[in-house]
Design a binder for these strands. Structure first.
Lengths: 242, 242
DNA sequence: CTGGATTTGTGCGTATGTATG
DNA sequence: ACATACATACGCACAAATCCA
């Protein structure tokens, strides 16, 4: 089946399509899936009748949104449509505004807490024993690391990923993971972590609540988990009054 | 005050910074705010010692994330850090996967409903009379348009923006607005709208519930609002079995 | 309103680095 | 080790848009 190439003028609406839009159209019309190879820059340049510079700039836009993925010296492929762009954008917003606008981090934490609590009833009902065991192991590792004064980003991130994996809503899982990344990045700029043992222990408390089978208990445990994080944030912003 | 320019080698970690990162650094170090002018491409090219093509490609990445905003023939400015990139990315994901993967739209609707319901207690408590009046006017307009068989995207979008404006959480407001845009774009590909009168009337029901002062009533009204939307989606996906 | 200056947008040629086989 | 295909990078010239005197 020959590839179909979108034209510059889009039928009815007479506004000429941008190069970015025409490349998106190409992917849609030819029903490509994530991972499928894209034409080379040279071929795109020929088929769309624009210079390679424009193709490259369009590709930069598309790869920033993970619509395409460029592999140096190899080729270009349809991207996985992940939310890396959102993570970058939010992280930068946090860095830029955390001086004067403390709302951002607070809003971010509120949203994380809110979304996890939303799934509490489903979690106590459907989280399977295997997942719980894996989370328990992560929590134990976190406590150990905290006792040594070390942080535990990988374990924490995976713990929360597993927690909402029950929801069955892929979008909320990806969103929460992005929020975790942003929170992690931005809070690094607020000085060293604090209250590590409390934070680590809170994960055990979450698992305990799940095993009681009470959604209300889980909700309370999740709220308590975010408490030391909030305190640290408030103290940091109080200290860096510019 | 002279501008500070970031160097390629970032102090400790000896991995050379990318052009994108160095431009981000420039914004951060010089404490620029959204709307502030950026150096010209030529000046960036000189100061960062890379060609203008590279600067332009980096700018494309940054403008895709709304970190900078480029105005043809005028200049480049620090962007508003909006979530337009997320909207584009999600919209494309929806277009690409809505054929074989019906989860996406369903997850999106679930998330919208969930987040609006989260704020129901706060809404019934704090939404002021002026805002309610404005929303009532929008709902009336929607019903009128629906009676004529016309759609009402602008009114619907603004209605939901006002609904969550009470939350005080700017992030959730922006996220919900993005979800609205994505939902609107993707559902266009599922054929013409249906159940317009029911959908329009549901907005009046939401306001009625708010005026009763009961969070539970509001929650129920919000759920009912999303019901015809879900039905339409299910019927569309059933009809387009590829 | 008309230039003219500034700035971004576009096109092209060429050389270099990088991955695959 | 070599050849090929591809992405990366640079520099220049000109077009188009915007602003301001």
């Amino acid at each position: 089946m020959p590839a179909q190439w979108p034209t510059a003028d889009d039928g009815a609406g007479r506004a000429p399509l941008t190069v970015v839009d025409r490349i998106k159209q190409y992917i849609l019309v030819n029903r490509l899936s994530p991972g499928d190879p894209m034409p080379t820059e040279h071929e795109l340049s020929d088929q769309l009748a624009v210079s390679r510079s424009r193709i490259r700039e369009a590709m930069k836009t598309l790869s920033a949104l993970d619509i395409v993925e460029v592999r140096h010296g190899y080729g270009t492929f349809v991207g996985t449509l992940s939310l890396t762009g959102l993570a970058e954008s939010l992280a930068f917003r946090g860095m830029l505004t955390s001086h004067r606008d403390k709302h951002f981090l607070a809003d971010l934490i509120d949203l994380r807490e809110l979304l996890e609590i939303d799934w509490a009833p489903l979690i106590v009902e459907r989280l399977d024993a295997g997942t719980i065991a894996a989370m328990r192991a992560l929590a134990t590792t976190m406590v150990d690391l905290a006792a040594q004064g070390r942080e535990f980003p990988v374990e924490d991130r995976q713990f929360h990923q597993l927690l909402v994996s029950t929801s069955g809503n892929a979008l909320v899982g990806q969103l929460l993971d992005v929020f975790w990344q942003v929170h992690s990045l931005v809070s690094e700029t607020l000085g060293p972590a604090s209250l590590l043992p409390e934070t680590a222990q809170a994960h055990h408390a979450i698992l305990d609540a799940i095993e009681t089978g009470s959604a209300a208990a889980l909700e309370a445990a999740i709220r308590e988990h975010y408490q030391p994080i909030r305190e640290r944030m408030l103290r940091s912003t109080a200290g860096t009054a510019d």
